[in-house]
Design a binder for these strands. Structure first.
Length: 853
RNA sequence: GCCGCCGUAGCUCAGUGGUAGAGCGCAUCCUUGGUAAGGCUGAGGUCCGGAGUUCAAUCCUCCGCGGCGGCACCA
């Protein structure tokens, strides 16, 4: 018996793979291509088992597809710009570039240790000028095409860090890092015109049939398409001559309008505020309102009656008051609405507060028009229109169409489509990001950096010790010569949102050394990504940005695909129990000893015996100190055990709870597998047992089929479960005198089925079996159909729906044959005594139900 | 508030319109020359609750309850 020693075995095979360059992808190979990609990591400096799970999943797919004859591209890179490096710089005075590159070096070694079948020759990092220079190049092309623009907009401003924050960096109204209350500030910002593609991004979702429905739904909601009417009201008496334009999705309820309301930052409100300090005071008051969930939730509706009146578009005898209201959003629709309190809860709340008219115009079926009233709950259900002149009697949808048609005929409005999606604000006042490559000139305005001056590199020696943008503070960096007039000018000091970096990296991997941002031929060969894998937290932002940028670059002629990711899989997190001392201090799992006493588990600190509280399994985080690093596991059980475990316990899309007992289970499986190979192919002595041989062969071919289908269906946990069963079958067959050929077949299949999950073990087994080549290059086994079909079935027999016995029948037996067997079965006949058989239902190869009374 | 997901053994979770499962834990026993262990056997279930459809519901439909996630004054 040779013990399986992963510490010796695993590095040896990794060296063999490197030596043979087996994972190198060849652009243009005649084999069918398969591009598998996991979302690239931020180089935080240390890998945890959550990363391991993500990359192990991609690796299973990559190795499986390679074995199935595909030319596989499985690259790796680094999402390397971002705040942690700046934080490290601010806190410890280190250079963010040096810090980042150190982390990359460390994480690269940890990733390599996982035995991932990655083509490392294509590695890239977004903080590398060789990468971001190309990003600047295409950014300028988009600028030229008008897809990049500057505008003044409201942004989340962190007054302590002195920077703009992305929405997701604002937590409960406070900066995620500084904890300062975030202000809404008007600032000139760079935007990418993603809204130009809103319709296409929405339509494209329908074709993404290998994406999770959940993600498609989230994107659909995010884009938020709505159809309605843009309608201009004329002022009665005072007011701007052009009138006031509102957007509504409920033109059918126009006769229920009792007020108009504009956003506090609407131009009309601005001009009124300029003339009247009281209005200005009101606007200032509502703008101060916080952005936290709780504040928005409980925010009271506040309004200011401007005194202006508009005429009802279909009834010039009616005048409607115009208010300024805090719940109207400037950046949606036209920033102005008409309020129909009877059929909109927000409008109703507002109307009740300010005592405005509430006229129902949609009558639910079965209600009496005289008696129907709306009190504190708006009616938003179906019904017929009434109190509405020419719309009376119509269904809601008919009335919408009629109202739009009338507005269009009268020349006061038109049908309109509006999206919730906003343009993408990409400027950040940060020093560790991709510089926006433009120059501001007093005389020429915004001038693009000439292509030959790209990349615009970040300077060295930035000062991160103070809040604010270090690029703006740098003594010399921003001084530039205007490329247009040659005069003195200044560089843009904002850098790009790191989501820009990650919105095209998958298109760079096909040729990461190309002189152009994207090599057309290589990208054409490899794209789209056949299988993309990552966390569901990127369901909207990253995945939507990447879909947008792909289209923008395609329209630039740089890409031929418009949809970057043909298949998407969103994997769950790895969680871990948390441990806490009496004092409340979190304790890492490594120093805790778990003891089972009967059914209860207790935890103590190993060194001192001090008891600790066992808490819920939570997402691994430094603050809860429940992070497990793959390296810790590899030192004891090897990385194969860690890979097996993170894939085995739970379906890939769900969270998995890391436990030491679980990884021990995986380790035992590895040893059981190894023991079979160590045993060799010689079966028990004596006459060959044909029946046992046949059973082993059946088990072998069933295992091939089950594991193959499980991997294809992304059910890695059931694939591993099938491996458990198959190993048991191989082991049990050892007791009988099975033919050496059948055992050899079983072991050869076992090694290849294990290979995607535990590749080092599989190589060792493969060599032990006497194979000379690498299993990483071996082809996937095929199953024989005849061996996976049972020729006999065990059919449960129910009497009135309860299981009362079973019969053995040939596969595919007819109802008549099965009935004969059922009524020839003594146990069943006895059960039926005294009952009249009314009906017999035979489901071929499944079950029999006898209905009797 | 809107949308989605989940609820099955002590724990973590598979699964299926037709015999309720796995890993871990627990109990019993065996082995102590596969020993940084290994193996046998076993106990343990109102499949969240209620109604409906069906010959048959843990599964499908509807109504609840509980947990989680996304969006959130989007007119």
């Amino acid at each position: 018996m040779v013990r399986y020693n992963p510490k010796e075995v695993e590095p040896r095979w990794r060296a063999a793979w490197d030596e043979a360059e087996v994972f190198r992808a060849e652009t243009g190979s005649p084999k069918p291509k398969y591009y598998v990609l996991e979302m690239f990591p931020y180089p935080s400096g240390s890998l945890h088992v959550g990363h391991a799970r993500n990359y192990a999943m991609g690796d299973v797919v990559a190795r499986f597809k390679r074995a199935r004859g595909f030319n596989v591209l499985h690259p790796m890179g680094w999402d390397a710009f971002g705040l942690p490096a700046e934080n490290a710089a601010a806190e410890r005075g280190v250079d963010p570039a040096a810090w980042t590159w150190d982390n990359i070096a460390r994480m690269r070694e940890e990733l390599k240790r996982l035995g991932l079948s990655i083509d490392w020759t294509r590695e890239l990092a977004t903080c590398d000028p060789a990468y971001y220079g190309h990003q600047q190049a295409w950014f300028l092309e988009l600028l030229e095409r008008g897809l990049v623009y500057r505008k003044e907009g409201l942004v989340n401003w962190d007054p302590v860090d002195m920077t703009v924050l992305a929405n997701e960096q604002v937590i409960d109204g406070r900066g995620w890092r500084s904890g300062a209350v975030v202000e809404r500030r008007k600032l000139t910002q760079w935007f990418l015109r993603i809204t130009d593609y809103a319709e296409e991004l929405l339509q494209g979702l329908a074709g993404l049939d290998r994406w999770p429905d959940k993600v498609r739904l989230m994107q659909e909601n995010w884009i938020g398409k709505s159809q309605g009417l843009r309608l201009t009201f004329r002022f009665a008496g005072d007011g701007p001559a052009e009138g006031l334009c509102v957007y509504t999705t409920r033109p059918d309820t126009l006769y229920g309008a009792s007020f108009l309301a504009v956003a506090p930052d609407h131009p009309l409100a601005d001009s009124l505020a300029a003339a009247d300090p009281a209005v200005a005071a009101f606007v200032a008051q509502v703008r101060k309102g916080g952005t936290s969930e709780a504040e928005i939730e409980s925010a009271e509706k506040l309004g200011w009656d401007t005194g202006l009146r508009v005429l009802h578009p279909f009834d010039k005898t009616r005048e409607i008051p115009v208010w300024i209201a805090n719940f109207v959003l400037m950046d949606y629709g036209t920033g102005a609405i008409f309020g129909c309190p009877a059929h909109d809860q927000r409008d109703l709340d507002f109307a009740r507060k300010y005592d405005l008219r509430v006229t129902p115009v949609v009558l639910p079926s079965g209600e009496d028009p005289i008696l129907f009233h709306v009190k504190h709950e708006a009616y938003v259900g179906p019904g017929r229109i009434y109190n509405s002149e020419f719309l009376d009697g119509l269904e809601i949808e008919e009335a919408k169409a009629a109202a739009v048609a009338r507005a269009e005929a009268d020349g006061i409005g038109e049908g309109a489509t509006v999206y919730r999606l906003r343009d993408w604000g990409v400027a950040r006042q940060r020093g560790w990001g991709c510089p926006i490559p433009v120059i501001h000139c007093q005389t020429c305005g915004v001038v693009p950096t000439p292509p030959e001056q790209l990349p615009v590199r970040l300077p060295e020696g930035l000062d991160f010790s103070k809040p604010g943008n270090p690029l703006a503070r740098h003594p010399t960096w921003k001084h530039a010569v205007c490329p247009a007039c040659g005069g003195q000018a200044e560089r843009e000091t904002d850098t790009l949102d790191t989501f820009v970096d990650s919105s095209w990296y998958f298109a760079r991997f096909p040729d990461p050394a190309a002189a152009m941002p994207i090599d057309a031929a290589a990208a054409d060969y490899w794209l789209p990504v056949d299988q993309y894998i990552g966390g569901v937290e990127h369901a909207v932002l990253h995945l939507l940005y990447a879909r947008f940028v792909t289209r923008a670059l395609a329209d630039e002629g740089m890409l031929t695909v418009r949809e970057p990711f043909a298949g998407l899989f969103t994997q769950g997190m790895v969680t871990h129990e948390t441990y806490r001392r009496q004092s409340g201090e979190w304790v890492e799992p490594g120093v805790v000893d778990i003891r089972s006493e009967g059914a209860t588990r207790r935890a103590v600190i190993t060194a001192t015996g001090e008891p600790v509280q066992i808490g819920e399994a939570e997402k691994m985080s430094k603050s809860k100190r429940n992070v497990v690093a793959p390296a810790d596991i590899a030192d004891v059980y090897g990385v194969d055990a860690a890979r097996l475990f993170v894939l085995s316990d739970s379906p890939p899309e769900r969270d998995v709870q890391w436990t030491s007992t679980g990884v021990e289970g995986a380790w035992r499986l590895i040893n059981r597998i190894w023991a079979e190979f160590d045993e060799g192919v010689t079966g028990a002595a004596g006459e060959i047992d044909d029946s046992a041989t046949r059973e082993l062969r059946r088990a072998t071919h069933k295992a091939i089929k089950a594991v193959t289908e499980s991997i294809e269906g992304f059910r890695f946990n059931s694939a591993v479960a099938r491996l458990y069963e198959f190993v048991a079958a191989v082991r049990n067959a050892r007791a009988a005198a099975v033919s050496p050929a059948a055992r050899r077949e079983a072991l050869g299949v076992l090694a290849r089925l294990v290979a995607p999950f535990a590749p080092h073990l599989a190589e060792e087994c493969w060599r032990t079996l006497g194979e000379s080549g690498l299993i990483a290059l071996a082809s996937w086994p095929q199953w024989e159909q005849a061996l996976v079909e049972d020729d006999e079935r065990l059919l449960p027999v129910q009497i009135n729906g309860k299981r009362r016995g079973e019969v053995r029948a040939p596969a595919g037996a007819s109802s008549e044959e099965v009935e004969k067997l059922v009524f020839g079965n003594a146990e069943i006949v006895q059960r039926l005594e005294g009952l009249t058989v009314r009906k017999v239902i035979v489901v071929t190869d499944r079950i029999v139900n006898v209905v009797a009374g």
